[in-house]
Write a protein that binds this DNA or RNA. Structure first.
Length: 572
RNA sequence: UGUCCCAUGGUGUAAUUGGCAACACGUCUGAUUUUGGUUCAGAAGAGUUCAGGUUCGAGCCCUGAUGGGACAACCA
């Protein structure tokens, strides 16, 4: 390599801000260098429309679409709809929404069912070539002949049917001459293969079920292994990315391509990566469906769900999810990602974009005894110290305000920077107040009211700042505050790995306190005009968004997306 | 008692054709702060599962072991 090339490489590296290349990018770089695929990169995201997408799919979406962007290639959205018994249009719509919301545009939208005719034609070709046969046995019989990973399988008694007979039977299957399960089409490969998937896998099964797109045109449907690679081939996919459990399917993927792709034709290559596992949650569609169906959560978009729609409702941003995907990277080793990383990526985004508001979750009344009754001052508060363009707002201040119960202690420890008898704090954006007295509710024994005096010289807006106090509290005017419901979410499961216990059902680990509803919260009036999904930071508490139910129920309902980092409560 | 895949701080991911193990999260200090947030400065934490081999030199290559995972649906 010449000096100038070295310099260029170094310069390019610097321009890329040392973005790490994962093993898939390394593979693509190599392909590009070799001139493979004529420099094309074409990926696809191929969900089966049988459920809602979750954060694990988000990883795959970001990977596939991200690669297409990075290499100026293309990415298709393809619905892998080869099993009409599980698939529904509702899911197709939700998948489109989720991908779009994440911020990606697909170059083409396809369905595996678009290729049913072609797939059928190729199946006939395989029959004619003596590479496929119709088997009349039951599922049980076929299974029992399959052998085990350590023991070879046996031949089906129907394995040696002539091409003519197979063709005739296969056509009859297609025409509906047989009932479900009476016959299947099998690829004729190797019953002794050490790879179970190569032991004459089933290509077509009979299903007299209407399909969400092809209606009742078909009563035979191709299996995943047959349909997937051929679909990739039809679409000109270069890199077919999937998760690790498909690793053993790859030889079969390639075998089917061998049957239809002429020598020298460019064909897709399957590459597997490790799926995402998140601590304290489950990720399989089956289990998520169970949580929905058995009402452990409200729906797929329940804010506690790891679904994309649930996380959106919870208040996660698309940018934070994309960022998260970037951060966790992609590799081949099994992983469990700490939810703290996910929380970090939302906070990072929300800190920059979310306007600040005052909200008191557990109100305690403070009466400022030397402040005029019936007086209201409009205090000017900065909306977002991280973003000047968000400007400021007016917050009404009155003689009686609510503060957080946690912010007052009768007998506070040394490092408690909040309110207590004889102590001073600043009410943020307003005045410094001093606690003179408090009243205890005789029935409950709890502090009911706190009496303070304020120092008129310390008004924030007039720029008087000579005096400093250690603590600053948020507050809401009793007179002007709005009632709100706040939904506080905690992890759905109490165990780090709910499905890591073979002897126990994952539902045993459900967290009974994953949702706490607070109906006594008070929020400042400026939040009145917020719209569902708007993000906020309730100062000193956390990030919240306005829930969808606000519209339906005509009252303010907030979701806690994630609490603020809190180095105080940790020390206690 | 088969085949295939994987193995780097607590977690996740890096480390160009072998060349002093890096980054992020988390943790802990300190500073700043009208958010116990943010920001800033710093620290601790792995010698790359183990044992051999090749090499001047191995996290990268080879051999073997150990540990973990995948595979026997007419699911995808």
């Amino acid at each position: 390599m010449s000096d100038s090339n070295e310099r260029n490489a170094a310069a390019n590296g610097a321009a890329d801000e040392k973005v790490k290349t994962n093993f898939i990018e390394a593979k693509i770089n190599k392909e590009l260098a070799e001139g493979k695929y004529n420099g094309r990169v074409h990926t696809r995201f191929p969900p089966e429309p049988n459920g809602y997408l979750h954060i694990g799919h988000a990883k795959s979406i970001c990977l596939n679409f991200g690669l297409a962007q990075k290499y100026k290639g293309k990415c298709n959205l393809r619905f892998d709809d080869t099993n009409p018994s599980k698939e529904e249009t509702e899911y197709v719509d939700s998948i489109r929404n989720d991908v779009q919301w994440l911020g990606f545009k697909w170059d083409n939208e396809f369905f595996a069912s678009d290729y049913f005719d072609q797939l059928y034609a190729w199946a006939e070709k395989l029959i004619i070539d003596g590479k496929a046969y119709v088997d009349d046995q039951t599922a049980e019989e076929i299974a029992s002949q399959k052998g085990t990973p350590t023991k070879a399988g046996e031949f089906s008694p129907y394995r040696d049917r002539t091409a003519e007979e197979n063709l005739k039977l296969f056509r009859e299957m297609k025409e509906g001459a047989y009932k479900d399960g009476e016959k299947v089409l099998r690829a004729k490969i190797d019953m002794a293969s050490s790879n179970m998937h190569m032991r004459d896998p089933i290509m077509y099964r009979i299903m007299h079920k209407p399909h969400h797109r092809t209606g009742d045109k078909w009563c035979i449907y191709p299996m995943y292994d047959y349909a997937h690679g051929e679909s990739d081939f039809i679409e000109g996919i270069t890199n077919s990315l999937c998760t690790l459990e498909f690793e053993v399917h790859r030889p079969l993927y390639n075998w089917f391509l061998d049957q239809i792709a002429e020598d020298g034709t460019e064909r897709p290559e399957q590459t597997e990566f490790a799926r995402l596992n998140l601590s304290y949650t489950v990720m399989s569609k089956r289990k998520l469906l169970q949580l929905v169906k058995e009402n452990y959560v409200n729906h797929w978009d329940d804010p506690r769900m790891p679904t994309i729609t649930g996380m959106r409702r919870r208040g996660f941003t698309a940018a934070s999810l994309r960022n998260f995907a970037e951060t966790i990277g992609v590799a081949k080793r099994d992983n469990v990602i700490d939810v703290a990383l996910l929380e970090h990526s939302v906070r990072e985004d929300l800190n920059k974009i979310a306007p600040r508001y005052f909200a008191v979750l557990n109100p305690l009344k403070v009466i400022i005894t030397n402040y005029p009754e019936n007086q209201t001052e409009e205090m000017e508060l900065i909306n977002n110290p991280e973003d000047e363009t968000q400007g400021s707002r007016k917050v009404p201040f009155t003689r009686e305000v609510f503060i957080e119960k946690d912010d007052f202690m009768i007998d506070p420890p040394r490092k408690f920077f909040r309110l207590g008898p004889g102590r001073e704090v600043r009410l943020k954006g307003a005045y410094i107040v001093k606690c003179e007295d408090y009243k205890i509710n005789e029935a409950t024994g709890e502090v009911e009211e706190v009496y303070c005096t304020y120092d008129p010289e310390t008004q924030s807006n007039t720029g008087q700042g000579s005096r400093k106090v250690k603590g600053t509290l948020h507050w809401v005017s009793c007179e002007h505050g709005l009632d709100a419901e706040v939904r506080i979410y905690d992890r759905l499961f109490m165990d780090e790995d709910p499905d890591g216990h073979p002897d126990k059902d994952f539902k045993e680990f459900l967290n009974p306190d994953s949702l706490q509803i607070n109906t006594q919260a008070k929020v400042e009036p400026a939040i009145q005009n917020a719209k569902p999904f708007d993000h906020f930071q309730f100062q000193r508490i956390g990030y919240f968004n306005l829930d969808l139910d606000t519209v339906k129920e005509k009252r303010l309902i907030f979701n806690r997306t994630v609490p603020l980092r809190d180095s105080w409560s940790k020390k206690k």
